[in-house]
Design a protein around this nucleic acid. Structure first.
Lengths: 143, 143
DNA sequence: CATTGTCGTAACTGGATTGGTTACATTAAG
DNA sequence: CTTAATGTAACCAATCCAGTTACGACAATG
């Protein structure tokens, strides 16, 4: 089953930072974001560290430290976030390799891989359509 | 991460049954299938039980028992299999509900849901393109 | 230069999920 | 009645993940 709320939380965090900056603040703290997400600050820091590695966010240290976006909300797509946060493939093959003596055991991997590749391509294309700016607009409209 | 090998194994099992039937046999046993997948027969039975519930496979009991397809391979798409085997949504929202006092906390759920709906639609459309017949052909070509 | 507020990160925990395994009742052919 | 298979419950071990605690690193500020 999908335990996959990482993308949601990542988008939440970025949206929060984006909105906060738009209101004139320099940086947002992991504690503020955690309060909105309703989780622990460390969870947020870990997640944002991945986004930083992907060049989507950045952090300052010391007093007055916190997080900011590395790019304009219009220049961050959900595909960027997805890739930063979900490295593995959507569908996996077998966990223990199937019987190589069997035609199906040999052929099923390649056969499914081509399908999965197409599915992932479609998924990426769809995620690329939405920017953080769109998310921000959606968030404000939902009020 | 994707621990999602269920779809792969389900397709494997159905392909095995399909090929076996095509070669003139009436039914395939969970033990035969398990030997090809390289797992335990009970795992296969559990999985096939789900596919049976979805009307894709059927089973006989008693001596000479086993499994058969309920429809022609051309009439079974990977979307059918996916729906039979993966009931939950691809992306989940937060596990603990976000802070409703916060604009982002309130709006992020609806905003992401619309995106996720589009993504799932794209994914389903892609999975619907491939039938078990296609998989079977792919398996045999891979040899 | 000491204080302070925040990040960075390791380590541990508890809960949930999952695949595998054993065991045994049920079923139907011969 | 015997036999070969499914149906299903129960349990185990491994894995994963979010949450939590703890503490070191860092930089602004007075």
């Amino acid at each position: 089953m999908s335990a996959n709320s990482k993308l949601t939380v990542a988008a939440h965090a970025l949206a929060w930072i984006g909105l906060y900056q738009r209101r004139g603040h320099e940086v947002a703290t992991s504690e503020q974001i955690a309060a909105s997400v309703n989780t622990n600050p460390v969870v947020i820091r870990r997640l944002l560290a991945e986004l930083r590695k992907a060049g989507l966010a950045d952090s300052r240290r010391g007093v007055g430290a916190g997080w900011m976006l590395s790019r304009e909300p219009t220049a961050i797509t959900l595909l960027d976030v997805y890739e930063a946060v979900e490295p593995g493939p959507l569908f996996a093959l077998h966990r223990s390799t199937p019987n190589p003596e069997c035609v199906v055991g040999r052929g099923i991997g390649p056969a499914m891989t081509t399908v999965y590749d197409d599915v992932e391509t479609a998924l990426r294309k769809e995620l690329a359509k939405t920017t953080l700016e769109d998310v921000l607009r959606g968030v404000l409209n939902a009020t």
